[in-house]
Design a protein around this nucleic acid. Sequence first.
RNA 1: GCCGAGGUAGCCUAGCUGGUGAGGGCGACAGACUCAUAAUCUGUAGGUCGCGGGUUCAAAUCCCGCCCUCGGCACCA
Length: 657
Amino acid sequence: MKLVTCGLPYANGKAHIGHLRTYIPADVYVRYLRMLGEDVIFVCGSDCHGTPIVVNAEKEGMTPKEFVEKYHEHFKNVLKAVGVDFDFYGKTAEEYHHEMTREIVRRMIDGGYIYPAEVELAYCTRCDRFLPDRYVEGICPYCGAMARGDECDQGCGKHLEPGEIKDPRCKICGNPASFRKQKHYFFKLTAFKEFLTQYLENLKATENALNYAKEWVKNLRDWCITRDLEWGVRFPGDERFVVYVWVDAPIGYISFTKKACENRCDWEAIWKRGEAEIIHFIGLDIVYHHCIFWPAMLKAANFSLPTAIVASGMVKVEGKTFSKSRGYVVWVEEDYLKQGFNPDYLRYYILSYTSHQKDLNFSWRIFKDKVNNELLATFGNFLYRVLHFSWKNFGEVEMEVDDEVIVKIKETREKIIDALNKWEFKMVCDAFMELAAFGNSYFQSEKPWDLIKQDKNAARKVISNSLQLAKALMIFAYPVMPESMKKVAKALELDLTSCSLDDAAKIDEKMKVRKPDLPFEKIDEKVIESLERMMENRFKEAEKKVETKEEEIGLEDFKKLDIRVGRVLKAEKVQKSKKLLKLEVDVGNEVRQIVAGIAENYEPEELVGKSVVVLVNIKPTRIMGLESRGMLLAADVDGKAVLLMPERDVEAGTKIK
RNA sequence: GCCGAGGUAGCCUAGCUGGUGAGGGCGACAGACUCAUAAUCUGUAGGUCGCGGGUUCAAAUCCCGCCCUCGGCACCA
């Protein structure tokens, strides 16, 4: 038995093409396994807890429960629409999941792996709440640089536990946060170093994930697993707290398995007795949670361990790094499904573009090319020309298939299985595309349309071979393009849902052929052009939003700014930094140290003696451990600074108005 | 800056425990065909295998240095 899971989508926004990069390959993988006779359970669900959800729900005037429900429904519907067919799609806000989480955490406590420790936590008196992780900004206690959330330490790569950060400020309202001591609970991750090192040695995983994790395991620290929040799973050791999201989210794999197993199988066989393979499909961004925290938790609770971790590469949009705020995003529902595109096209694109481990570029133009040239012209056209010819000239064909054809089909089957074992889905697609090309070439060279005029029996043999190839292709491509293949298979009265991969090489005595449907529809150039325009507008609008702050201010606001001309006296590079220069600037009444992110455009030497424009009364801060008192004004050109300078020589300290 | 993954023709990719002229697909170009959604088939062109050193009889493949891209962290007051 095998269990396949997908990383849980966070119920905090809409489904985009990045999500599908793990769900679609996982779905395809599961469908192939089933066609190989494997018993597979396939589960997923919405991740519902954590501070961002609480904060965003508040912003939208909803309760976290309502908020989460909204996105949960969205994901459920979208995934179904693209043919990702889970046995169970749950959500972590449900009671059954809370129970499971509490059971596992209790086992971790009973095993002696959880201990209390006092930590100092940032608390925002204005927002009236404790500030977890990513809502705290401050100074790293190790190196003195600006730090954010639970990670910092400027280049030394250390991990911050709650309470360690200095000078914390609330990221929500910007106010300084005060420290409050609070008892929290820690998981003894450090006790698992040896176990994890061993475990990673033997874990089956894509290389991108494994190397990353092996490096991480060298530097383990105990892990604070409680949070002071209302929303979440109550920590069984101390009911005032809630468990950290990354504790309860992966436990969803277990609680969803249990639901999927109801009246069908034994979830404990999978998760407690190690009688099944457990395969996690995830994105590259959550590798360490799945390769470090998760196996350690399972070990502590005495549960079964994952046997494989399959991590997918990132998604780019039109060649640019995926970014919602910059508009480089493709929304599955409104951009794709509402255009009326066949979901199978997207499935094929995602599977066949590149190796599962590498970055995938989504471009509407490439999308059109792949659909029109590969799917439609090569693959679909072979199916259609064979079926159409058979239907028109025979109706029913007595089958007589050459060994060469059967060998070719079996070879393709082997290639597909081989590729699946390596999680190389592009190779799977390449294998059946090659078989389609073989079919076209065969059909073309045998010229059945000529043969039939002279020797109907000879034509029958050619058609018999071609039909066998067509049937094999439908079976082989069914997991990738289920709906389209079902549609064409109707012409052969073939029920793909009950086929195995072995059936591809099985020869029927006779094959009946009905009038076929076209398997695919061509994508119109004009549609692509309009989508490209839509994307461009989206990029532009996103850019505008970032650049122009609409809010108007009065003169009195402007007067609050003390802006002066300053003269640069000294300039040097900040060590270990790409963008920073440390300057000493004469601002009239004093000389100030200012750290500025301008090193990409300016050499230190060329600045000495130059006049610059300085915002003097900005709050002093520390950057890379250095104090900075003032800010140089500069034009932001593609993220690089171009300094403002007075048009003629002006004395240092001159006010700007 | 640290960690990880990569850089092979316009695009995607195989090869990378060193050894037949660096394979394949898409696109481009030319010809053939007409059963088929102007689909298909055959052929042609296109590569300093990121750059520079080194090891070797022999390197895309091993070693050293550098550059660039992507991701994570950090950072850009």
